[in-house]
């Protein structure tokens, strides 16, 4: 694809040099944006009035819900990057996949941890085998499997391709897991009343901190993703250079 003129953002970024030039300023800009949005979102988080039912704990939502959304969004990114790496054998796409997996796992852990902290005062329990929580937990296991496979194989290119296959299998499986867990939950007369989801009828006053925090999470992910891809590109360059020197 190298010789064509770029007419699409993907073609544009697929060129490693252009990607490095772009990410060099995009990463700090996104990082700054994340800080500004995050601070504004946090200020609003603590400024909004208490919920008449949930009291102060409603503020947890603005930390928790965006993390849960990101945990799934990042897996989607991982799947798409893995697909591109597998089909086009593109080194940059593989670096993108490798770079986003630990970030996705971190968002998933954050979502589970904050959800658990929120559940304690709200439902009186740290954990419910509720459809959403269970499928997010399985999502975390998918991330862990990906990371384990990736680090277990010594050969880098083989590890990359095997992990990409697993990521795609996981991408196909995630909707099925979601469906199966929901089906299981209706069977077990789940906690649907407990989950009279607050975000289903979110009052306008809560919309702003929620939107700001979501954008802050998104920007932070973008910045960290770019930084990690850049680090991987550099590491590969350094390794290639060392190899060339060793060969004399």
């Amino acid at each position: 694809m190298g010789a064509r003129t770029p007419h699409h953002w993907f073609d544009f970024l697929a060129n490693p040099e252009r990607f490095m030039a772009f990410s060099r300023w995009a990463a700090p800009v996104l990082g700054g944006l994340a800080v500004v949005l995050g601070v504004a979102g946090l200020v609003l988080t603590f400024a909004v009035p208490e919920d008449y039912q949930q009291g102060d704990t409603v503020r947890m939502m603005f930390i928790h819900v965006p993390a849960a959304v990101m945990s799934m969004f990042v897996y989607l990114c991982l799947g798409i990057a893995s697909f591109l790496a597998l089909v086009f054998r593109h080194a940059l796409a593989d670096a993108a996949a490798q770079a986003c997996a630990p970030l996705g796992a971190a968002f998933t852990v954050l979502a589970l941890a904050t959800g658990s902290l929120w559940g304690r005062p709200m439902w009186g329990t740290w954990w419910q085998w509720d459809a959403r929580m269970t499928s997010v937990l399985v999502l975390l296991l998918f991330y862990l499997g990906y990371l384990a496979l990736r680090s277990a194989l010594d050969d880098e290119t083989k590890a990359a391709r095997a992990a990409a296959i697993l990521a795609l299998v996981g991408l196909i499986n995630l909707p099925i897991v979601k469906f199966s867990v929901e089906w299981w939950n209706t069977l077990h007369q789940g906690s649907s009343t407990l989950f009279a989801a607050p975000e289903n009828r979110l009052p306008a006053v809560y919309l702003w901190p929620w939107a700001l925090m979501s954008l802050a999470y998104l920007a932070a992910f973008g910045a960290l993703w770019l930084v990690r891809i850049r680090a991987l590109v550099w590491r590969r360059k350094a390794r290639a250079l060392a190899l060339r020197q060793a060969e004399g």
Partner: peptide, 20 residues
């Protein structure tokens, strides 16, 4: 294939897929 720690790795990969 080709990894040094087969058993545990296979379990970690496969068990989440066994959920449905």
């Amino acid at each position: 294939l080709g990894s040094k720690r087969g058993g545990l790795l296979v379990a970690v990969i496969v068990l989440p897929l066994y959920a449905p």
